[in-house]
Lab assay of single mutants.
Amino acid sequence: DESNKPILLPNESQSFERSVQLLDQIPSYDTHKIAVLYVGEGQSNSELAILSNEHGSYRYTEFLTGLGRLIELKDCQPDKVYLGGLDVCGEDGQFTYCWHDDIMQAVFHIATLMPTKDVDKHRCDKKRHLGNDFVSIVYNDSGEDFKLGTIKGQFNFVHVIVTPLDYECNLVSLQCRKDMEGLVDTSVAKIVSDRNLPFVARQMALHANMASQVHHSRSNPTDIYPSKWIARLRHIKRLRQRICEEAAYSNPSLPLVHPPSHSKAPAQTPAEPTPGYEVGQRKRLISSVEDFTE
């Protein structure tokens, strides 16, 4: 099969070098950035008060330690540790928490760990991170309901609301924008112990962030949302095809390698009803078989 044979790379090609550099910018793992907010007593309706908090309760602090690993920003190499735009020179604080497994990295933009500057009256330095995160974990210690939209931002799609209760338990629920209701189930609340709260809140936030990324990708319907490693695979396959075309153009005697095509017509299947918005969006999480067989 010609399409699977190794090909020689061009010795000097600026377009090839640019493509390789672009490939280096696509990590081999999925990345997520999640905002974390603490809401104190009497702050449920005040964005400024929430963003001005420099610490929270003892249970909130224990919750943070379970979310991930504490890292010092100045020691991080952005090409190895995903920071979601946090500055490593102290502009966004000294520490944050991050978490990773074999296929993804997540960083938490924690408002109480970011510096509260006197010259920044409206807390814009914090909002440029927190307001651009799709998902926020809100530790609501106010005793009042927290409403979506209290923290203004164009991309605040989903809130994971943590409400501490007695007996070391917590109520965990989801809020989302109306255009996200087909992807996020907000109907079920959970009672979770303090011990298990970081794991549950983190998983709910990661799932909500993946759904938000799919939702946000609708602005470019021709580019369905893939995982990062599938995006790398697609980029490599496009690069291979372009090299083959350039080689055939410079030397017409060489065969032009095309991806294999299936001449056999697909079997006719009964027509199915058109899937609704929710089903269609969830299918976009699934990769096409052509990603692996071309």
Rank of each mutant, 00 (worst) to 15 (best):
P275Y: 09
R128Y: 09
A247Y: 09
I137C: 00
H159D: 15
G93S: 13
G93N: 13
C176L: 03
H262G: 14
V138N: 00
I103W: 13
K228N: 03
S52G: 08
K152V: 06
T150G: 03
R123P: 15
F134Q: 02
E41G: 03
L254T: 15
L86N: 15
L48G: 09
H55M: 11
H100N: 14
K117F: 13
N196T: 05
L9V: 13
A189Q: 11
V135E: 00
R59D: 00
D75E: 10
S193I: 01
V172P: 00
R69H: 12
T269K: 08
P260E: 15
L51Y: 07
E294R: 06
M210P: 00
A271L: 12
Y60C: 00
G85T: 05
F292C: 13
E17N: 11
K127S: 12
D92W: 06
Q94I: 10
G42K: 04
P275H: 10
A265I: 07
D24G: 04
Q175F: 02
A35Y: 02
P266L: 09
K147T: 10
K283P: 11
S19G: 11
H258L: 14
Q175S: 06
I243S: 05
H122Y: 11
Y97M: 15
P275D: 12
D75Q: 13
H235A: 10
L51V: 03
E294A: 09
L86T: 15
D101F: 00
R232K: 06
D166K: 02
E278M: 07
N196K: 03
D102F: 03
D133P: 09
N196S: 05
L48C: 09
A267Q: 10
S261I: 08
A201M: 01
R232H: 09
Q105S: 11
P164W: 00
T274H: 11
I243T: 12
E72T: 10
D24M: 02
D166S: 04
D145V: 06
K121P: 15
F199E: 03
I110V: 13
F155Q: 14
G56L: 01
I286M: 14
L285F: 12
V192Q: 00
A189K: 10
S253C: 08
G280T: 10
K264G: 14
I224A: 10
A111K: 03
R59L: 01
E41I: 04
W99L: 03
I7Q: 06
G56N: 01
A247Q: 08
H32V: 15
I286D: 15
P164G: 00
Y38F: 03
R240P: 14
F95K: 06
Q281L: 10
Q203H: 06
E272Y: 07
S263E: 13
V20I: 15
C89I: 05
S46F: 02
N140T: 00
C244T: 13
C98H: 15
H262I: 13
V160M: 01
K178Y: 10
N220H: 08
Q43R: 01
H122D: 15
D120W: 09
Q154T: 15
K33D: 14
M210S: 01
A111T: 03
R123H: 15
V192H: 01
S193N: 03
Q281S: 10
R202S: 10
K33Q: 13
I161K: 01
L8P: 15
E246L: 08
A248Y: 06
D118A: 15
V36R: 00
V162D: 00
H109Q: 04
K283L: 09
Y97K: 04
N132L: 09
M104I: 13
K117P: 11
